[in-house]
Simulated assay, not measured.
Amino acid sequence: MKNIGPPVYSQIALDIAVRIARGELKENTKISGRSKMASEYNVSPETIRRSFQLLQDMKIIEVLQSSGAIIKSRDNALKYIERNNIGDDFRNLKRELNTLLKERSNMDKRINEIVGQIIDYSERYRNIKPLYTLEFEIPENSSILKKSITETKFWQNTGATIVAIKRSDDIILSPGPHFVFEPHDIIVVTGDMGIAQRIQDLIKNCDQ
């Protein structure tokens, strides 16, 4: 058989207790009469009367003979909530909220750190030209054949730094100044965008 849950008056009583526990409704203050509360919860005044009676039995409110009720005890409201098995839910939600707030604080802090680093890098490298890595094959009758890196004044003439030389199946990393160029060597260089034309001019054929 399907569980239809607690009666409406009990649900309303619990909701009022929650509002008292949250401080929305203060101790020693008056809450609205049955007609107004009935309109607020869209139920009959009789349902509100039963809700008030339940809360009065729990010593949470005191029903007035004239109209409405006086809130007597927030502590009793909390006890009533716990008895209805939602106290743990409140505590869990509060813990989860605190965890999320801490995570958000840490995330905001990290975002600020990253933004600061980006700004720092932008300022530091604003005037530095980007570097490119390019490859050039030395033709068979290049003007730099049988010459060392020092003899060709490679860096002085091109502004490029030789990262490696590919020779057949070998890769020579960071060749020294006495490295001698051979036909079909592939020079791997890094530098600004202007190095391409300068290197082409340096390694061009002797008969060009």
Rank of each mutant, 00 (worst) to 15 (best):
L134N: 05
G159D: 05
V163L: 11
T161R: 03
K147V: 04
I144P: 02
K166F: 04
I172G: 09
T152I: 14
E151V: 08
T152G: 11
I138P: 00
I138F: 06
R167N: 04
W155R: 07
I138L: 00
E135R: 12
I144M: 09
S143K: 07
K146V: 07
L134Y: 10
E135I: 07
V163M: 07
E135Y: 08
S148N: 14
E151G: 14
E135K: 08
S148K: 12
S143W: 06
E151F: 08
P139E: 06
S143E: 13
R167D: 00
V163S: 05
T158C: 10
I172D: 03
V163I: 14
V163R: 01
A164S: 09
I144N: 01
E137W: 02
I149G: 03
L134C: 05
I171V: 13
A160T: 05
N141P: 10
L145Q: 02
S168E: 12
I138R: 00
S143C: 06
I149D: 01
T152F: 15
E137Q: 10
Q156H: 10
I165K: 00
S168W: 02
I149C: 06
A164G: 04
E151W: 12
T158P: 01
I162K: 00
L145E: 09
K147N: 13
N157S: 14
V163P: 00
E151T: 14
I171G: 10
W155M: 06
L145I: 13
I149V: 15
E151M: 15
E137M: 07
I162E: 01
E137N: 05
K146G: 15
D170N: 13
D169K: 13
I171R: 12
D170W: 06
I144G: 08
T150V: 10
P139R: 02
K153C: 10
S142T: 10
K147M: 13
R167Q: 04
D170M: 10
F154G: 04
N157G: 07
T161P: 02
I162D: 00
K147Q: 12
S168D: 11
E140F: 13
K166E: 02
R167E: 01
T150K: 15
I171Y: 02
T158V: 03
I162F: 01
I172Y: 03
K147W: 12
E135L: 00
E135G: 08
E151H: 14
K153S: 13
